[in-house]
Design a protein around this nucleic acid. Sequence first.
DNA 1: GGTCGAATTCTAACGTTGATAGAAAAGGAG
DNA 2: CTCCTTTTCTATCAACGTTAGAATTCGACC
Lengths: 213, 213
Amino acid sequence: MPREGKRIKGSVGERAEARDQLRAELLSAARALADESAGFDSVTVRSVADRVGYTAPIVYQYFANKRALLVGLVDVGFAELADRLGRAQCPEEYARAGGPLLAVATAYWEFAAENPHLYRLMHTLSDVPFGTAKAPAAARECFGVLKAAVELGAPDHPAAKVDDDAVADLLWAHLHGLVSLTLDGRIKGGPRRARELLADLTVSFVGTPLPVE
Amino acid sequence: MPREGKRIKGSVGERAEARDQLRAELLSAARALADESAGFDSVTVRSVADRVGYTAPIVYQYFANKRALLVGLVDVGFAELADRLGRAQCPEEYARAGGPLLAVATAYWEFAAENPHLYRLMHTLSDVPFGTAKAPAAARECFGVLKAAVELGAPDHPAAKVDDDAVADLLWAHLHGLVSLTLDGRIKGGPRRARELLADLTVSFVGTPLPVE
DNA sequence: GGTCGAATTCTAACGTTGATAGAAAAGGAG
DNA sequence: CTCCTTTTCTATCAACGTTAGAATTCGACC
């Protein structure tokens, strides 16, 4: 869709708005290009600019460099993931899915399945750490949902003795591990079977009774 | 270290040997460059060739393209991981580490900690699937070790009902998830705390007794 | 309403990268 | 000593990220 108005114009307020919109269009363009071809390797600065009807240098009016553009997309990704997880975080969804863990795990899985390239980018782009502070707000939000689910769904997990966040960290790691290996084609049987494993992941996470002798 | 003999020479048999050695040197050079700077992004065909005392086109005498060179390194990585896991797979190590799962998990963790860039490459380079067949032999070997450990260490895992490999798949996913997030700097507290989580991962994997009421 | 100035966008170019073609050089075989 | 194969390099290409500076456009002010 080549731009119609082409140049950004209007009063100061209108321009600020138009600038925000073009920034968003650049992000969408990059995302769309990654989806249409095979991943973000084939997304070039020129192709992104082309798709919104501009030439390459326009990108640098909105992002410091290509990497910043991709980091912008990572933020979008976490925002969408947070939204999806948030919608799973309510008693109705907990009940419908069969428990807090399953509800949250399913939401996580579905986001990754519907946005494989974006998901991969979110974990491929290094130096976007979010150990504690400095993390994108959306990422902390995601973590919060996982933590809430874990407190209800696996209150007696052994990792709880490490600290308050440990169990949620572990759940995130488990989800990411399964999703990541699946996207990489490293789980035999593909997404279908991996989806089954996801259910058992949550089952084992709440704690399996040891055989009583 | 610029080459000394420079040109490959000698009788037919000697040349085959020398070719194999140069191939290995190219792989080592790429690996070393990744370790010295920050990851494989800064590894260029020219820099690899330079490091072994040749010019860029030499690489294409040994690998179809840059990607093939990196895939070669992935194979090296899985071979080393298989070796390390294999050394953990014996009754002595099982006992020393506190069970088969801990032994295997520790070996996995240590490999990743000592070779972060290579580990990342092994999971970043897409289209190197090993769902079932076609997988590098070393990767199947790794899986075999995990499977053996799981059969001893978590015989009653709920995922066992999916199929024979399900529990091992899950363990691999859990290990990869924690390692991967740690390398990405996404676990607060860094490797130190993540290492603790690893222990609890295995504890919860064998099955936590539910509180008996 | 015409002019000024700031904002926006493009053209042109640079250095680097992966990759290829073809020339050059080197060594074994007869 | 000459030939022929193998090995290696020089030169070059197109594509990429990025930047400088020119050109254009439009709102604002007199």
